[in-house]
């Protein structure tokens, strides 16, 4: 496996990185964890003229909860940091559920959440989690910073809305109003395989009443699917069997899977339905136990 010839730069400051990207005119590619980019280079699926390695940039490894309760994940924060952050389980249960399911332990030690969202692989886990939780990407370019909701950030398979001279410096997950609940389930044929199907659910509740619901689907469409519309069935009441069934049916209908060697479209839809039901039933059980 020998990649095509490429240039390599390892800037020490964010401005320098942005300057390199600007000079690259779209032919430069950011290297963070490299867990998708390096295989693509070796398979010659990607042949950028230059790699801008951001691993030496200071101040991007953070995993921080702000005073207002929102979570900021820096561009160099590895999946394994999220996996080990036990404190996330309470305020961000969807993240805590997804972190150990991302790829395999080796990839998790190196790969990054921000990189995964930028890569925009429809089979990537984090985009679904971020959409379900209403998270945003913070991008910095020559003219400053902007915030882009992840639901708008992913524009298609392996496509995002970043300009070529912008760096995604962090992803911000807003704090839940009330109690956070939710989960992430994924079917994969083997640890590290692309998802056959995955479901991310992010809820906020006040007592037993759901006040906000987000949902997104992994691996069942050309891009990560925002199924928050289907999740609206849950808002404004308790997690009854009827509401759960309507959300599951809505999610299955929102999925746009294709039949392939991971299963038929009908099977993948069925898995989405099953997983939505399982996540919500578990949340309902937890609520009941807590009451």
């Amino acid at each position: 496996m020998y990649p095509s010839r490429f240039g390599y730069e390892s800037p020490r400051a964010l401005d320098e990185a942005i300057e390199l990207l600007t000079r690259g005119q779209g032919e430069a590619k950011i290297l963070a964890g490299g867990q998708s980019l390096i295989p693509m280079l070796k398979l010659r699926f990607a042949s950028p003229e230059m790699l801008v390695d951001i691993n030496n940039l200071p101040g991007l490894s953070h995993l921080t909860v702000d005073p207002d309760g929102s979570l900021r994940v820096g561009a160099l924060c590895r999946h394994s940091q999220l996996e080990r952050a036990a404190a996330l389980a309470g305020p961000f249960p969807t993240i805590a559920a997804a972190a150990p399911l991302v790829a395999d332990p080796i990839v998790r030690n190196r790969g990054t959440l921000v990189g995964s969202i930028c890569h925009a692989d429809p089979q990537g886990d984090w985009a679904a989690v971020a959409i379900a939780l209403g998270a945003s990407v913070v991008a910095q370019g020559p003219s400053g910073r902007r915030r882009i909701p992840v639901a708008d950030f992913v524009s298609g398979p392996f496509q995002n809305v970043l300009a070529y001279d912008e760096v995604a410096v962090e992803v911000v997950f807003p704090a839940a109003a009330g109690t956070a609940a939710g989960g992430y389930l994924k079917l994969e044929r083997r640890v590290g395989d692309f998802a056959t199907a995955g479901v991310a659910v992010g809820l906020e509740r006040s007592g037993s009443v759901v006040t906000r619901a987000g949902m997104a689907l992994t691996g069942v469409g050309g891009a990560t699917i925002d199924a928050s519309g289907a999740a609206q069935a849950l808002v404004g009441g308790e997690l009854t069997a009827d509401r759960i069934a309507r959300a599951a049916e809505g999610a299955a209908a929102a999925a746009k899977p294709r039949s392939d060697h991971r299963g038929s479209a009908a099977y993948k839809r069925h898995i989405v339905h099953t997983f939505v039901t399982r996540i919500l039933t578990r949340v309902a059980d937890d609520v009941e136990r807590a009451a």
């Binding site: 295989p39 398979l43 395999d104 044929r189 083997r190 640890v191 590290g192 395989d193 692309f194 060697h261």
Partner: peptide
Amino acid sequence: NYMDYLLPTAWE
């Protein structure tokens, strides 16, 4: 490649 040709790991 090993993304499509699945060999079990210690996990499975």
